[in-house]
Write a protein that binds this DNA or RNA. Structure first.
Lengths: 213, 213
DNA sequence: TCAATAAGGAACAAATCTGTTCACTAAGAT
DNA sequence: ATCTTAGTGAACAGATTTGTTCCTTATTGA
């Protein structure tokens, strides 16, 4: 019963081991970032508490102390203001329709291409298995942009730039949907892609002055 | 060395065990169907040879004899003419633009809603991890429909129903992308959804006669 | 300076998955 | 009727994951 194990204590650290020891928020943030990185790489089903822990430079124990399931951890990471998507979505409305559309969709494209934005892709197909996660993405990422876009359309319609019949939820969803699909399809959405979507699809679709051709 | 185990032989079947024993194609088909069903339920990362085998009413051995990895099996199941998507895509072109658009996108929507179509959802987000699977989906499901849709546009443009500038790959991709996103978003795409997409988005976008309003 | 707290890091049993092997037997061919 | 092929169902060792527990020690605040 004597515990004469070869257990290595925290003192004799192997070469390369971290010297500082984070706690509280600093550690939580590191775990959030590790979670989103893992999510982007291995997908939701591939998440392992162990992997996340060592990626964050800590042990499983610290994780289990805070969250009990991967879904819980992912939800927390997604909604965190600094690691996740808590406090974004600041796109100016200049009043120039095309400019505003490009800015809004470009913002969405960039968000999706950011390191933690890539974490969203695996979740988009998880609606049936994890409705609460999917709902979170809708609420935090897609909904605000569609609402904003609808406001743009309405304002432009009031100025006479957009035909009134084009101010609908479905039409407001076309741009974001095209960007998201392009993101899943090609893996990256460039500024040129965004402009092409606006010029080839959105403007002809909504413009009050009929397209030539 | 006497194998005096409690092993149960295939003869003394437990209640409910299958009496017939399938081989060759019949068994392969059952495995394909089980694979696509599992895919729809647990996603690609959740696939287990064991689960697929028992869902198909057989053992792992029969599976390993044919395929060595889940990806290989999924690829085979997807491209199989009868269990997968090998021999579909028969949509008539009547020459009536709106009718043809509704038929084509309706066909896509129904394909996605079929039992084995639901298997596609998890794969759509696997582009980075399994490019060959995603490519397969593009080739078998999306590409043919976009090509067909482009042909529709061109023919309609020749008749003067569609403005020539609208005959582009990007515009041909709008309909399918909207349907796929709607499928991922809502889980089901109804006939009414398809008509709304055609009437609210596609027709105004491509029509040679400018929309009123 | 010192005590309370919690992180780091490893061990651990239980559960699960992997890929193979085996004895048995149903199905199809000769 | 008999032979050959291949499906069934189980067992198995090895690997991996899961949650927990334990000891040591860095950090923080009193």
């Amino acid at each position: 019963m004597s515990s004469s194990s070869t257990r290595r204590t925290a003192g004799d650290a192997a070469p390369g081991t971290r010297q500082t020891r984070r706690r509280g928020d600093a550690l939580t943030q590191a775990v959030y970032r590790a979670t989103l990185d893992e999510l982007a790489e291995v997908g939701f089903e591939g998440l392992r508490f162990d992997k996340i822990a060592s990626r964050a430079g800590t042990g499983k124990a610290a994780l289990y102390r805070r969250w009990s399931t991967p879904a819980e951890l992912v939800m927390a990471a997604l909604t965190d203001p600094s690691a996740g998507f808590g406090g974004e979505m600041t796109v100016p409305a200049t009043g120039a329709l095309r400019t505003d559309l490009v800015a809004l969709l470009g913002n969405l494209a960039r968000t999706l291409d950011e390191p933690h934005g890539r974490a969203l892709r695996p979740l988009l197909s998880q609606r049936s298995r994890h409705p609460e996660l999917y709902a979170q993405i809708r609420t935090v990422i897609l909904k605000p942009r569609q609402a904003f876009l609808r406001d743009l359309l309405r304002a432009a319609a009031d100025r006479g730039e957009v035909r009134p019949a084009a101010v609908t939820d479905r039409i407001a969803s076309v741009g974001p949907k095209m960007v998201v699909m392009e993101h899943m399809d090609a893996g990256v959405v460039t500024a040129a892609d965004v402009e092409a979507i606006v010029d080839e699809v959105l403007m002809p679709l909504i413009s009050a002055t009929p397209p030539t051709g």
